[in-house]
C-alpha cells in the first residue's frame, strides 16, 4: 500500500475529502499524546488537549502553506494549546517556581535499590513526568519524535541555545540520579 505524504493528504482534505484527516490523526496522535501527557501530567487532560489541537489544526488547515513541515506546524499548535491549558489552570506558575536548577525535588521518591533493574525504565518515565513542562517537551520531541534542536526551537519559539540548555539539564539530572544509584552499567 502506498504511503501518502502529509502534503498529499492535506491537498486531498483541501479538495473536500475531510475523512482523509483521519490518516493524519492516526499518524500523529501517539507522539502528540506522549508530548502532552508529559507536559500536563494528566492522561485525561492530555487527551482533551490533543482533541482540541486536532480540531484547531483542521480549522487552520487552509492557512497551512507547506512552508514548514506539517509535523512542526502541528506540534506548535499542540505545544501552544498545552501552554494555554496550563496557564488557565495557573499550574504554570507553580511549575516555574520549582525551577530546574533546584532539582532535588525531582530525585526524591525513588528507591532504586529496592526496585532493581526492571524498574529503571519506570524511574526514567517517572523522572520525565516530574520534569517542568518545557524540559519534558524538549526531551519528548528530541528523543521520541527525533526532531532536531532547530525544529524544536521552531515549535517552542525559543532559540536553539535555550533548547540545548533544556536538553542538557534534563540529561544531567538523569545522569546524577544514575550515578547516585550505581546504575551506569545496568543501563548501558
Amino acid at each position: 500500500m502506498i504511503k501518502l505524504t502529509d502534503s498529499e493528504i492535506i491537498e486531498s482534505i483541501k479538495r473536500g475529502n475531510q475523512s482523509d484527516y483521519s490518516i493524519l490523526v492516526d499518524r500523529y496522535k501517539n507522539k502528540a499524546y506522549s508530548l502532552l501527557k508529559r507536559m500536563l501530567k494528566n492522561n485525561m487532560e492530555a487527551e482533551e488537549v490533543l482533541q482540541d489541537s486536532f480540531l484547531k489544526a483542521f480549522q487552520a488547515l487552509s492557512n497551512f502553506k507547506g512552508e514548514a513541515k506539517f509535523s512542526t506546524w502541528f506540534y506548535r499548535i499542540v505545544y501552544n494549546t498545552a501552554l494555554t491549558r496550563l496557564s488557565t489552570k495557573k499550574r504554570k506558575i507553580e511549575m516555574e517556581m520549582s525551577s530546574i536548577d533546584d532539582y532535588e525535588f525531582l530525585k526524591s521518591g525513588f528507591d532504586i535499590h529496592s526496585n532493581e533493574k526492571e524498574d529503571t525504565a519506570k524511574m526514567v518515565n517517572e523522572l520525565i513526568n516530574r520534569l517542568p513542562e518545557k524540559n519534558a517537551a524538549v526531551v519528548s520531541m528530541f528523543y521520541l519524535d527525533e526532531m532536531s534542536c532547530e525544529e524544536i526551537s521552531n515549535v517552542m519559539n525559543l532559540n536553539v541555545t535555550n533548547i540545548k540548555v533544556l536538553l542538557y539539564r534534563s540529561r544531567n539530572i538523569l545522569r546524577d540520579m544514575i550515578v547516585q544509584n550505581n546504575l551506569v552499567e545496568e543501563l548501558r
Binding site: Q18, V25, K29, S34, F58, S170, N172, R175, L187, R188
Partner: peptide, 29 residues
C-alpha cells in the same frame, strides 16, 4: 553515566490515547 542517561531517554515508550480516539475526533469534527 551521561551516555546511560541518553540511552534511557531514547528508550522512552510512546503513549497512546484511547483506542476510539480517531473515530470520536472525526465524529466531533
Amino acid at each position: 553515566a551521561l551516555q546511560a542517561a541518553s540511552v534511557s531517554f531514547k528508550n522512552i515508550k510512546e503513549d497512546s490515547p484511547a483506542v476510539d480516539f480517531t473515530s470520536k475526533l472525526m465524529l466531533s469534527l
